[in-house]
């Protein structure tokens, strides 16, 4: 299917329905699809399940909690162990108003990779003997204990890349591949926010990080600055 190019993030995310699950790429400031998040905030869609590395660290995802659009979060970093400030997510979590599945970061990444790659699950030593193991199958291989972790997919992935061409091929900059490159493979509809859109052929094939077949929608936006709070 050909990629659709948008000039307005609101139009690019208008496909999202209530009750959807959405993956969000990014690691704090690096590669966060902030324009798409703000557009989703304005859209008012609700009862959303968010999957993201972090929420409430200065990222725009916390806006979605402020407007009560979120019912559940799957993340690696969502609750602070110290410090005074609480995000909207934390306040709602402590009142039992929003669910949280906390996942070790490597397991989160690998579950998304598996989800995008047709892998039925994988064995990891991470989390053995901890709260993370609760309810999970423990398997022994050659005398070592592992947890069986299952793949993760979503209805949508919102990702951020540096450049796209008009076929949806993506290039990331710096440390912004993080979860973007993985989530691009693991959702039914992938929407990419990029800083520049260039003509097909102007990106070298060896330079492309995410092949365009994974991408459904591209929208050019000026980046929004995010800082760890």
């Amino acid at each position: 299917m050909a990629v659709e190019i948008f000039s307005d993030p609101a139009r690019a995310v208008s496909i999202v329905q209530n009750d959807s699950s959405i993956m969000f790429g990014g690691f704090v400031s690096a590669g966060s699809p902030s324009n798409l998040i703000m557009a989703l905030h304005n859209s008012g869609q609700s009862n959303l399940t968010l999957m993201a590395n972090n929420i409430g660290l200065g990222d725009k995802l916390d806006l979605l909690c402020e407007s009560r659009q979120v019912s559940k979060v799957i993340a690696t970093f969502a609750i602070r162990a110290s410090g005074g400030r609480q995000s909207n997510f934390e306040q709602q979590y402590h009142k039992g108003e929003v669910g949280l599945e906390l996942v070790p970061q490597g397991t989160f990444a690998e579950r998304i990779r598996a989800g995008g790659a047709g892998i039925g699950g994988f064995l990891t030593p991470t989390g053995v003997g901890t709260m993370v193991a609760e309810g999970k199958e423990i398997m022994h291989v050659k005398g070592k204990e592992y947890l069986l972790e299952l793949p993760l997919r979503a209805d949508y992935a919102f990702i951020k890349a540096y450049k796209a061409d008009t076929q949806g091929n993506l290039v990331y900059r710096g440390a912004s591949k993080n979860f973007n490159e993985l989530m691009a493979t693991a959702a039914d509809c992938v929407i990419a926010e990029v800083e520049q859109i260039v003509e097909v052929g102007s990106l070298r094939p060896s330079q492309i990080h995410t092949p365009g077949i994974f991408v459904d929608r591209v929208v050019q936006c000026d980046p929004v600055e995010i800082r760890w709070e």
Binding site: F77, A78, I79, P104, Q105, G106, T107, V132
Partner: peptide, 12 residues
């Protein structure tokens, strides 16, 4: 005492 925390990359 704080009712939570975050895992991040620590377990891995």
């Amino acid at each position: 005492e704080r009712g939570g925390g975050s895992i991040g990359g620590a377990m891995d």
